[in-house]
């Protein structure tokens, strides 16, 4: 017959009185918490709760904000590229006669010192956006689009277009001026055609009031 002996009951009662080692409670909880974070992650534990790289107040707005910022930067870049021009390959002088260049391709002030030359913003504008009429429609490319303007470069350090500096123009074409540092390209004397206003067929003279006879020529009563 197996029954608990008296001293065994005493041992059991004594062991019930054991102090539970309170000093270990925090360490054990840290281990439990780490295990739970690994095996049973919660929203609380995923969020930075202490010392983590938190962005207070941003919460779920971080990614939409970044997206909007990216969109804004992309829009700004697009606007800037439309306005100031993306690096455009220089066209061959055969395709762009000098007199067909827009007025915006006028050379910069030659009096400005070297090194501080700045490309005018309007010069690099894409050709499609420039309403410049062609003086010679035969000189226009077959694509119907104007080639980008060729800018004179007063600074020697600027890269030269590969095709414009060393090639001789074919006969019948005006000499290339894109790489001509000594003489700027001639100014375009073709006036920009204004958009007609008002009723067609009426000139300014139609608005002039001219008396049939001069007052001095009238008979006095």
């Amino acid at each position: 017959m197996n029954e608990r002996l008296t001293y065994e009951s005493l041992i059991a009662a004594k062991l019930e009185q054991l102090a539970p080692l309170p000093a270990l409670a925090d360490d054990i909880w840290a281990r439990i918490s780490a295990d739970l974070d690994r095996e049973m992650p919660t929203d609380e534990s995923e969020a930075p709760s202490g010392g983590g790289p938190s962005l207070p107040g941003t919460g779920g707005m971080l990614w939409p904000g970044l997206g909007a910022l990216l969109l804004a930067v992309a829009g700004l870049l697009y606007w800037y590229s439309q306005r100031s021009g993306i690096p455009v390959p220089a066209p061959s002088p055969q395709s762009v006669p000098a007199d067909a260049r827009p007025a915006s391709s006028l050379p910069a002030d030659t009096g400005s010192p070297k090194g501080i030359y700045q490309q005018p913003a309007a010069v690099a504008r894409p050709v499609e956006a420039m309403p410049v009429p062609l003086a010679d429609s035969a000189a226009a490319p077959s694509t119907g689009k104007l080639p980008p303007p060729v800018l004179p470069l007063p600074d020697d350090s600027r890269p030269q277009p590969a095709a414009s500096a060393s090639q001789e123009p074919p006969p019948g074409q005006p000499p290339a001026t894109a790489g001509d540092k000594a003489s700027p390209p001639p100014a375009i004397d073709t006036p920009i055609k204004k958009k007609p206003r008002g009723v067609t067929g009426i000139s300014n003279n139609d608005y002039r009031i001219v008396p049939d006879k001069k007052d001095s020529a009238r008979k006095k009563n």
Binding site: L15, P20, P22, A25, W29, I32, L36, S45
Partner: peptide, 22 residues
């Protein structure tokens, strides 16, 4: 799966469970 509730339960029963574990 509230971590705060889990810690509360652990703290409440730590003494009892530790005595058994020992």
């Amino acid at each position: 799966n509230s971590r705060k509730a889990q810690e509360l339960l652990y703290r409440q029963f730590y003494g009892f469970a530790m005595t058994v574990a020992m």
